[in-house]
């Protein structure tokens, strides 16, 4: 049985025919829509590399069956820049060396954007680390990631920042 699925992905409406209900949101984005920013790390919800926003909330795309989010609004790393300018969180990751190999970075950035929407301005490094504990970085760029999120939070809340 073929299922039809309609999603808004990064502001564009997409209708996909799915012949297999096992397709996860992550596989749909990467294999059917050509959006390879979200990464398949563990594929078990443990590493956070697949993090995207669904209706504004960060989720693990690898543990989401695509059919379950039919009708939703999905934002991936490919959709956060505006008019050729990086999103403030993207810019802050560059300014603070918030990555080394870069594999976890799209998930880190989407998770940080989601966290700010949930928690508001973030200054306490402990709260940032706790809020991003679902995103692993095996290069160990955590110090830079924490600073980047702190700085981006200042910019997004209108209190300055260095990035």
């Amino acid at each position: 049985m073929t299922h039809s699925l309609t999603l808004t992905v990064n502001g564009e409406e997409k209708t996909v025919a799915l012949d297999d209900p096992r397709v996860t949101l992550l596989d749909l984005l990467r294999e059917r829509l050509g959006l390879t920013g979200a990464k398949k790390g563990c594929d078990r919800g443990q590493c956070g590399a697949c993090t995207v926003l669904v209706d504004g909330r960060r989720v693990n795309a690898c543990l989401t069956l695509a059919l379950t989010v039919d009708g939703s609004d999905v934002l991936t790393i490919e959709g956060v820049a505006r008019n050729g300018s990086l999103h403030p969180v993207q810019a802050a990751f560059i300014a603070h060396d918030g990555f080394q190999c870069g594999f976890c970075t799209p998930g880190q950035i989407m998770s940080a954007i989601g966290l700010m929407a949930e928690a508001g301005p973030l200054d306490d490094p402990e709260r940032i680390r706790e809020g991003l504990s679902g995103n692993l970085c095996r290069c160990g760029a955590y110090a830079g990631i924490t600073e980047a999120v702190r700085d981006a939070s200042k910019i997004l809340s209108g209190k300055g920042g260095a990035a």
Binding site: G45, L63, S111, E118, L132, S133, G134
Partner: peptide
């Protein structure tokens, strides 16, 4: 419990 992503789901 879990992570921010998982708590949202």
């Amino acid at each position: 419990g879990a992570s921010g992503q998982l708590r949202n789901m």
